[in-house]
Structures are given as structure tokens and as C-alpha cells.
Nucleic acid binder design. Structure first.
Lengths: 148, 148
DNA sequence: GTCAGGCTGACTCTATGTTGTCAATCTGCT
DNA sequence: AGCAGATTGACAACATAGAGTCAGCCTGAC
């Protein structure tokens, strides 16, 4: 059984991914809490902030690898809360662009003041090349899982 | 800014973890579907099968890093479906042990016949040492996130 | 033995996310 | 221009997961 240890290794990796996913959501909730957000909005606002021109709801969903319905619900609530606004999309009549309002940008900036030290603190003693190789491995797995 | 690239690298890793978590759940649903399970029950049945003597519901929750309420709901449904049974715990009067029934073991076995080729296929051309180092990195991050 | 603190089961509420469906719109090909 | 297929918004049903609460049981220190 040449692949048996590899199989166990992979399943351990799967369990670790489930575990760290939960921990990341918990940390996201904790960080976002201070500025009145949740981890789901934390994920969404990060994608919106990355794109200057504004993105569509399905675009955010594709970036996160989630269903557009889930993202739509998040952005709808964030629009009610005044964090994002819907702007007409010159390239698509129905699909509006999601943009950060001034308040949304302030919230994102406040988020960064918590998120950056968090990211730095967690990777304090982790070499860059280890991060790189782990990221490459995950992206490789993602690619293989997305194809079929 | 010596740590700026590392910060971006880590955030990319976070995004990859969110992405692969969703893909793993989708694959888990797809594999578990054939034997009448869902990805949540797939995760739970794996933990139960790993322990011969039976585990408590909070024990499963700790192994998965989830709330015991979430696990309790899963095991309750699985008990109704006849996959698991609750046995009295000699070491704790109220906290019962969750065990696989014969049917549960059959389902787990059927699951393995799908899951093992899946695991092997995904890691086909991935060197063992890359899996090991990625797993170590994630476990290191998990350890740091669990402490506080 | 006793008792404080921790663990567990049961319940509720809320948030998140997937799937399915339908109509309206868009895109690319002819 | 016109049409087939893909994309999008809107809505609904369902599964999953966390947080909070309460009462009952258990454990360990004394």
C-alpha cells in the first residue's frame, strides 16, 4: 500500500482545513464585531474593497466560490446598513455594481487596523517560503477540485 | 514594510482555505449522496468510525472544533435513520456514547469505497513532503488560533 | 462528605449557505 | 437582425452552525 500513508495525510489535511475554516470564521467574527460586522460581511467587504471600479454580486460570489444567492443576501443587508450602494452597471442593465459607501470605506479602514496586526501576529515566526508552498498546494487542490 | 508581502500571502492563504472548505463540502455532499448522507454527517461519521469504543457528542464536537449543539443535531438525525446508536457511558451517567450500528458501519464502508479513490486521485501527483509541510503549517496556525 | 465549578442535554434564536425555480436580460453565433 | 444558451435577480425551502440559556449531573479540591 504505497498510497495509504498519503491517504491518511490528506484526510488529516482535510480535517485541518475544516478546523481552521471554523477558527478563521470565529476570528473574523471577533475582529468584525468591533465595527459592527460579521465574518460573512468581513469576507464580502474585503472583495469589494479590492476592486476599485465596483463588482457585481455574482462576481463577488465567484471570487469567494459561493452561491450568488448567499452573497446577495449579505449585500442587501449591508446596503440597508449603509455600507454599500448599488450603482447602475454600464455594461449590464440588470446586474448592478456593488460599491462601498463612505461609511463602508471607513468601516473597511477600521477593519484593517485590526486585521493587519492579526495577520502579522499569526504568521510571526512562519517563514515566507512555507506560506508560499502551502498556498501553492491548496491552490493546486482547488484547481483540481474545480475542474470536474 | 518587510511583512507586507507576508500579510498579503497570508490573506491569500485565508481566501484559499475558505474556497477549499466550500469545495470539500461540495465533494463531501457528492460522495455522501450516494449512501444517503450529507457532508455534515460525512464529517461526523468519520470521527465516530475512528474511535472503536464510542465517543460522546461533545467529544465529536471537540474533535471537529464545532459546537456540541451542531453535532448533537446531526447524531440525533443519524440515530433516527438507524446509523448510530446511543449506549450508556460507564464513565458518565448523562453523556451517552455514540456508536455506529451495523447499518452505520455498512454506510461507512460504502463511503470509504468512494472516499479513498477521491483522496488518492486528488493527491496523485502531489509529493508526500509537500502534504506534510502544508499540514504542519495549518496545524501550527490552528494551535496559535486556539490558544487565546 | 460536601460543595463550587465544570460538563452535558435540551431548547430557542439567529446567521449563513446551498439548491431549485422562474422570468428577464445579456452574449455570442449565424 | 434573430435566436439559443448563459447570466442575473428574486423568491422559497432546507441544512448547517454558533450563541445563549437553563437545569441536572459530574469531578475534584477541601
Amino acid at each position: 500500500m504505497a498510497h495509504s500513508p498519503k491517504r491518511k495525510l490528506f484526510l488529516d489535511l482535510v480535517r485541518a482545513i475544516f478546523r481552521i475554516n471554523g477558527l478563521l470564521l470565529a476570528d473574523g467574527d471577533r475582529m468584525a464585531e468591533g465595527v459592527g460586522l460579521t465574518s460573512a460581511r468581513w469576507k464580502v467587504i474585503g472583495i469589494i474593497a479590492l476592486s476599485n471600479a465596483g463588482v457585481t454580486v455574482p462576481g463577488i460570489a465567484r471570487a469567494l466560490g459561493q452561491s450568488r444567492q448567499a452573497v446577495q443576501r449579505i449585500t442587501d443587508v449591508m446596503q440597508i446598513d449603509g455600507l454599500v450602494s448599488y450603482a447602475t452597471n454600464p455594461r449590464h442593465k440588470r446586474s448592478v455594481l456593488v460599491q462601498l459607501t463612505d461609511q463602508g470605506q471607513q468601516v473597511y479602514h477600521a477593519l484593517r487596523t485590526v486585521q493587519d496586526p492579526w495577520a502579522i501576529g499569526l504568521t510571526d515566526d512562519v517563514p515566507v517560503d512555507e506560506l508560499e508552498s502551502a498556498l501553492r498546494l491548496l491552490q493546486r487542490l482547488i484547481f483540481r477540485m474545480e475542474k470536474p
